[in-house]
Design a protein around this nucleic acid. Structure first.
Lengths: 129, 129
DNA sequence: TGTGAAAAACCAAATAC
DNA sequence: GTATTTGGTTTTTCACA
């Protein structure tokens, strides 16, 4: 992670479809250099995913109350199912962030969470437009 | 916005660097069709931006308890300050999602929220690695 | 990093819906 | 009339020295 890597990340944050060539031109290096660096950033987990932001998805945060006796197992399960997980420091309660195309799909996903062993209760917040 | 557009969006959400060609192959249409449709999705504002998710930033969700008598005003203030706001349906309590480079910066931002008029209490959740 | 082959993106005209 | 395909050109990607 040097200055060049940070610049590459900044460019990709703004436009992840910018070509390697174009980034290379801006940074005065070869295309192959950009391609290899991006590959390394992905392999090392620094770049998690290339994605888009849309105006149509429903985004929700599901607050999840866990049974404290099963908390660590349930948390493990949640981690395997969702990538966007939040936790109070030092508390057993967690939240997952979910993005779906419709409110129905979001509700179905919440139902899945409610059915998980060790989940006592859930509360869903929806992103304001 | 038809079925094809939704599928294109789903593919791009998973990998915004997937080539038009590859998407075209999966949907059995020509590359030009995919390119034009993506262009239309961008121009109509449905696709807001092509971006990346990284593991560099600290992401937090701040749960905010509002004074019910000032709730609508405080919510208005929060909306002007943050773009990623979540709300329980029919409840006065909200959450904002904040992304910062360090935990210190995140805490400073939370302090700002606590100082807002009408904010009774806050609780911060931090994204798990 | 530089080179050359393969792939993808792009453009304009023709066609299909 | 709008959307899609087709064919030809430019640009980018990718592997290898």
């Amino acid at each position: 992670m040097d200055e060049t890597d940070y610049k590459i990340i900044d460019f990709l944050r703004e436009d992840s479809r910018e070509t390697n060539m174009e980034i290379a031109r801006k940074l005065n290096v070869s295309e192959g250099t950009i391609r290899k660096r991006i590959m390394n950033l992905v392999n090392s987990g620094i770049i998690r995913k290339f994605t888009i932001e849309t105006s149509l998805s429903i985004e929700g945060i599901v607050l999840i109350e866990l049974d404290s006796r099963q908390a660590s197992n349930t948390l493990k399960t949640l981690k395997s199912l969702y990538s966007d997980i939040y936790e109070f420091s030092g508390s057993i309660d967690v939240a997952v962030r979910i993005s779906k195309n419709t409110i129905e799909e979001l509700n179905m996903e919440v139902d899945k969470i409610r059915d998980l062993k060790g989940v006592v209760n859930t509360d869903t917040m929806v992103r304001l437009k």
